[in-house]
């Protein structure tokens, strides 16, 4: 199994890097002693979850076990966590209520589709991504309207949101046309690696956000 995983990692270095990115981020936070103020803790725990939950995917792939169900559940949780993250950083009561309602609806929708359909409803992920994109727009609008932040490039959540936006917008069509992307063998590898690139990009942006956090909270 270990040999299989190692050869897989060597064959797909981008995928390996995508898996390691959240771990690198966690190590950077620890080494640089970045203050995990307020909602950055949430992002930190998200990174940890992202990394840990990726390990079973490697193991099952190494053991050549079908992990599509696990992949779907993991995607579902990841997206729900990202949506939940906006509950904390958007300081508007009405939006918070909408986020809670959306979380509940999407959880029910995700689980029921999974339980009642024979095929894994990967296309549903598109809805999650669309919701996330909308929330990012709301967040950006909130930043502009509130103007509490003097230098937006020093605001950690701006970088985190930017990373999530690139990840979500870059992968939305891939999940919408799941049957043409993941279910066709020759294209699967390309799309899968492209998704890994998006993950790497997202964590790079998050990393910048965390690096900015130190300066931001010192100036605040």
């Amino acid at each position: 199994m270990v040999d299989n995983i190692v050869s897989l990692a060597l064959r797909y270095p981008v995928m390996s890097l995508a898996t390691m990115m959240p771990l690198f981020l966690i190590l950077m936070i620890r080494i640089k002693r970045i203050p995990l103020e307020n909602d950055l803790k949430f992002v930190y725990w998200f990174c940890l979850f992202f990394f840990i939950s990726d390990i079973p995917l490697w193991i099952t792939t190494g053991l050549k076990i079908n992990n599509q169900t696990y992949f779907y559940i993991r995607e579902l949780i990841n997206h729900l966590l990202i949506i939940g993250f906006y509950y904390f950083i958007i300081g508007l009561k009405r939006t918070k209520k909408i986020i809670v309602a959306t979380e509940i609806i999407l959880s029910i929708l995700g689980l029921s589709s999974f339980l009642f359909f024979t095929e894994i409803p990967n296309q549903l992920t598109t809805i999650y991504k669309a919701v996330i994109i909308v929330l990012i727009f709301v967040h950006f609008n909130y930043i502009i309207k509130n103007l509490k932040i003097k230098q937006i490039s020093d605001y950690p959540y701006f970088w985190i949101s930017s990373g999530i936006l690139i990840f979500s917008s870059g992968s939305i069509l891939i999940f919408l046309f799941f049957t043409f992307t993941f279910e066709l063998k020759p294209l699967f590898k390309i799309y899968s690696q492209f998704l890994d690139v998006l993950v790497i990009l997202m964590f790079i942006f998050m990393g910048i956000g965390f690096l900015k956090a130190k300066k931001y909270y010192l100036n605040e």
Binding site: I143, I144, I149, I152, F158, S162, L165, I166, G170, I172
Partner: peptide, 18 residues
């Protein structure tokens, strides 16, 4: 297109906020 639009949105937010 979507990725380019995302980058445009990010840049727009930076410039508009400034």
């Amino acid at each position: 297109i979507l990725i380019l639009m995302s980058f445009s949105v990010i840049l727009f937010v930076v410039f508009y906020q400034r």
